[in-house]
């Protein structure tokens, strides 16, 4: 089962009397000035986006940009100041306490940066915690927790305690705990930031595999661009609580909305992310081309041998339609430069 989320004009203001900020002229002040004038901190400012069913939606931004606050607002772990959130069409902010608890118990689960495991419970009982508080019997919850541990590759660690596990293993327990309630929507708040790079890569692979196997909607918070690019179907970039850009990895690298995003993606090898669409030019009148055209969705890197070997420019096609041509002159800047490039 998968799930959809829509967020509209979401605000979260920390501080004294936060309501007075939203919808007044205070709302347009920059963060620092607002803080100076009112002592309030706008952690999330007027954020709107929609996540489609089965999508991996990544939220990215520097530390302090409001990512954690945003993701916690989705299930009201932090109460939003204003705006609308709906999950599967149901308004989250209108839910009463019981309905909200049902949402958290059955439909949405979260994985935390610092794991949040319960040190006094065995691994098995940690994974079974969500089932236990739903009132599911001991045998059943142990069976399901055991399955989840197998799924995340922790067979044989059932009776150990969190402090006896490495960081990576602890986060697998966190993951298993979230999966155990079989939610339609999984929220990740920088789940791998505290892990070593190698383990982080393992875990990313793991998430991709799980997403492929169980097919859930994921909202994934990270400050690591590489991680965002590997995992995200779409990426939202947050700065000082505001949404700067939402788009595919390609959109971000190829057409950063402003200098902030551009700075983020500067070191990304463009040829690895961008497709030919981003470097093709219009064919000249009467220009002769190679016989074999390339699809517009080809990643630049994969097209390099062909284009360099070709004597003539290569046609770029979308289906049967020719949309442009590329040649070595267009290719080289994309390979060597990290500078901003506007699609032709």
């Amino acid at each position: 089962m998968t799930s959809t989320i829509t967020v509209e004009h979401l605000w979260k203001v920390f501080g004294p009397k936060p309501e007075r900020v939203v919808g007044t002229e205070l709302a347009s002040l920059p963060r620092a000035e607002l803080r100076e004038r009112t002592g309030c901190l706008a952690a999330v400012r007027d954020v709107s986006f929609a996540v489609e069913a089965g999508e991996v939606f990544v939220v990215m931004g520097l530390s302090g940009s409001g990512k954690s606050t945003l993701v916690r607002c989705l299930t009201r772990l932090i109460e939003p100041t204003s705006g609308e959130i709906s999950i599967d069409g149901e308004a989250v902010r209108a839910m009463n306490a019981r309905r909200l608890r049902d949402l958290r118990r059955h439909r949405v689960a979260m994985v935390f940066q610092h794991f949040g495991l319960l040190p006094h419970r065995s691994v098995l009982d940690n994974v079974g915690y969500g089932l236990e508080i739903q009132g599911i019997g001991r045998a059943e919850r142990h069976r399901r927790a055991g399955e989840m541990l197998t799924l995340v590759g922790l067979d044989g660690h059932e009776n150990q305690y969190p402090e006896q596990l490495s960081g990576g293993m602890q986060q697998r327990v966190g993951l298993a705990r979230a999966l155990a309630i079989d939610p339609a929507l999984l929220l990740f708040d920088e789940p791998f930031s505290a892990l070593d790079p190698l383990i982080r890569r393992d875990m990313q692979t793991e998430v991709r595999r799980l997403h492929a196997e169980v097919g859930k909607t994921l909202v994934f918070i990270t400050h690591d661009l590489a991680e965002a690019l590997t995992l995200g179907d779409r990426i939202a970039v947050l700065r000082d609580g505001e949404l700067v850009q939402v788009g595919t990895p390609e959109d971000l690298v190829g057409a950063p909305a402003d200098d902030y995003v551009a700075d983020f993606v500067r070191d990304v090898p463009r040829s690895d992310v961008l497709t030919l669409r981003w470097i093709m030019r219009d064919p000249l009148a009467g220009e002769t081309c190679e016989d074999q055209p390339l699809p517009a969705t080809t990643v630049i890197r994969d097209a390099v041998p062909r284009i360099l070997r070709a004597k003539l420019p290569v046609q770029v096609v979308e289906g049967d339609r020719v949309v442009g041509v590329v040649d070595a002159d267009r290719l080289l800047p994309a390979l060597i430069s990290h500078h901003r490039q506007v699609p032709a």
């Binding site: 299930t75 772990l77 608890r101 049902d102 949402l103 958290r104 118990r105 059955h106 949405v108 689960a109 979260m110 935390f112 794991f115 949040g116 495991l117 319960l118 040190p119 915690y129 969500g130 508080i133 739903q134 966190g174 705990r177 309630i181």
Partner: peptide, 9 residues
């Protein structure tokens, strides 16, 4: 830990 337990309902 408290937050994680809250998030599970």
């Amino acid at each position: 830990s408290v937050e994680a337990a809250t998030a599970l309902g």
